[in-house]
Design a protein around this nucleic acid. Structure first.
Lengths: 212, 212
DNA sequence: CTGCGAGTATACCGACCGGTATGGTTACCT
DNA sequence: AGGTAACCATACCGGTCGGTATACTCGCAG
């Protein structure tokens, strides 16, 4: 179990599962622009932030922005890709020590570690899931950022399948995970994280004892 | 049980639970404007739709729009309020017949009816939860629409508490409900609804048998 | 008959949008 | 020495944004 995603020396066929595209190399001004865009896009929304503001915040010019990224759409997609990589690293760092755990209780421990990572990740960030927010603005379009959103959600679902070792359990916990972010932010209910933990324990305790 | 929210002759203290503000009366052109705004805002997002397009779609003018609603922000808030009322009516209509059911299986039946209503409601609508989408664009601001989002989420949570008769169960099911909408749309996973049903059965089957 | 609320039509405002053009300055590589 | 990639500065483009102003028509209630 747990052979995938958490280690770099992965020996399983990686082609079978969702993988995040790698981040392209960036010049110094390019990195400054992407960082500025990341903060502004997440904090205010993708449509609400203009390229002029991004360039000014990064201490550079629109010319450089378009030389590096070609379009605002491409910059938005790259913002989400960078965010996915950062969340992935944050998550796997906190999950790394749980690799050796086995047995029925190990799945619960590992899944709850994801919710721990979510809380530390969200500490200070008040706008919820950047991927859900971006999708809310873009919808089911051919915008290049939508593919990144889909990839991140598929990655999280595959992670939960791995951690629980069961597709139904993985789906259940994934729904709890996505629901938590919504209820925390749009619902403004700080108890959501604790309720999600309770839900995870219920779901995993019912392994094999649930309805046919 | 289930004394509230599903009937109009409610005898319980309504002040104790979240209530949606009533819709103000509308003139004929006002109603046309609100309907046009509703379709456009939901389909394309709040920021992406300009007041010119709304007025033109409604077959009237910007002057009338501002005479009736005062500002775009107020129109956005009213759009969400109208949507909340419509979803509430759609939901309660499908839930009405379950009032008489009692016993441990009744809670499961009633909750699953909510997920049935969600599927029929979402049939044809491809943009997920309009409240989550609006909040994604507006964030935790003083925009008048944010209060409507909060009210709708609180209302759904209270409904699940009622249907299950238990705050922890209500929270669990509410997380599954919000997660379903996210995974269906941003995740583009059509199996989310079926997985949510499975999750509801697991959660309710564990009533009283879960961890302390 | 008069006043008024509702609606239509059109023109206008400053600000901002994504994107482009021109031109010049470094620093490094061959 | 020459080329080139990266960068900064500034001005400009057509279009759209939310919101306002002016002027007119209609139906109805006093």
């Amino acid at each position: 179990m747990l052979r995938t995603l958490t280690t770099l020396d992965d020996t399983t066929p990686a082609a079978l599962r969702p993988v995040l595209a790698p981040l392209p190399p960036l010049t110094t001004a390019g990195a400054r622009l992407l960082d500025a865009a990341g903060s502004l896009f997440y904090e205010r929304g993708v449509r609400a932030v203009g390229v002029d503001l991004i360039a000014e915040t990064a201490g550079t010019t629109k010319k450089t922005l378009y030389d590096r990224f070609g379009s605002k759409d491409a910059l938005v997609a790259l913002y989400l890709l960078q965010r996915a990589h950062r969340w992935r690293e944050h998550l796997l760092a906190r999950l790394g020590g749980a690799d050796a755990l086995e047995g029925p209780a190990a799945a619960e421990t590992r899944v709850l570690l994801v919710f721990d990572a979510l809380q530390t990740w969200m500490g200070g960030q008040r706008r919820g899931c950047g991927f859900v927010n971006a999708y809310a603005e873009l919808g089911d379009t051919d915008h290049p950022a939508v593919a990144v959103v889909r990839a991140e959600k598929a990655w999280m679902r595959a992670l939960f399948d791995d951690l629980t070792g069961d597709a139904d359990l993985g789906a259940h916990v994934h729904l709890l995970y996505e629901g938590t972010l919504v209820v925390l932010t749009a619902g403004a209910d700080p108890s959501a994280a604790a309720q999600a933990r309770r839900g995870v324990r219920v779901a995993l305790a019912a392994r094999g004892t649930g309805p046919a």
